[in-house]
Amino acid sequence: MAAIQVNGLRKSYGDFTAVRDISFEVPQGEIFALLGRNGAGKTTTMEVLAGFQAPDGGPGGGTVRVLGLDPVRDRARVRRSVGIMLQEAGFFPDLTVAQTVDAWRDFVAAPRPRDEALELTSLGSKAATRVRQLSGGEKRRLDLALAILSRPDVLFLDEPTTGMDPEARRRTWEVILDLARQGTTILLTTHYLEEAQRLASSMAIMDRGRIVAGGGMAETLAAQTGRVAFDLPLSVGVEELPVPGATLEGGTVVCRVTEPDLAAQTLLGWAGERGLRLRGLEVRTATLEDLFLDLSADEKNDERSGEKSGERNEREVV
């Protein structure tokens, strides 16, 4: 049984529908990333899964299950097995880091020792610091320390590394990966595509409340185009290049191809025969960023074609 099941979820606030009929599953021990721009519906989805919000009433609202339980109806039981790192939640500013963790240890069953939680989140040296004196990144780490105190079976992480410096971010990634290796199921939302690609085995990209792309991370990226880029030699035109679909972006040639390594080989052979150098050559396989940008480009094209067809219709009506 999947640890997290979302089936046809819909959530509205008044006239505004934040999440529209989305479905996905997260098997136990996997890390699943929910991606999307601000307002895409990621946090609402997570809040429903965490039991803070109920799906829309009636059969159109869909169902969500966490460890086989309804997170709203069985909230107390679900929360005992779940750790939640909210995107926005306050701290008691006058308590120290150690006092905060100690207080939270009283709130959960069988908690980790305080030092272990602080060590995992690299906050040991801040134990005696008042929460109001912590930086944004340190507060996120304290957030994580509180979320993992109860050794949860399922962990919800909403933008877990926002505000962290690169070193803290990498250490946090290690903690998250370790937890998944130990069997914790993790659902995370993030703006950092590199983070999602590094951590998650599956993902869904949301836009305006819908899932517009999703599946296994490796399979999804394998289906995407890679990228070969280099500075266009002075005496050469783009149309002369031996790779189809090359475009000029500034002075840089960009080729989007399914097999960028083969394209690079072809280009280097072609350049070698002509005694040309391909300065600034970059070869990389598809990344989430590419996928994300492709989806955005598709969306803009759809909007433009929608506007044009609207204009045409108007003309026809007139």
Binding site: F52, A76, R79, L86, G90, F107, V108, A147
Partner: peptide, 17 residues
């Protein structure tokens, strides 16, 4: 104050009723 600072929400994120 705790509602507006989202402290109640944080406390609800634990297993507390």
């Amino acid at each position: 104050a705790r509602r507006d600072q989202l402290l109640l929400k944080r406390m609800r994120a634990t297993g507390l009723a």
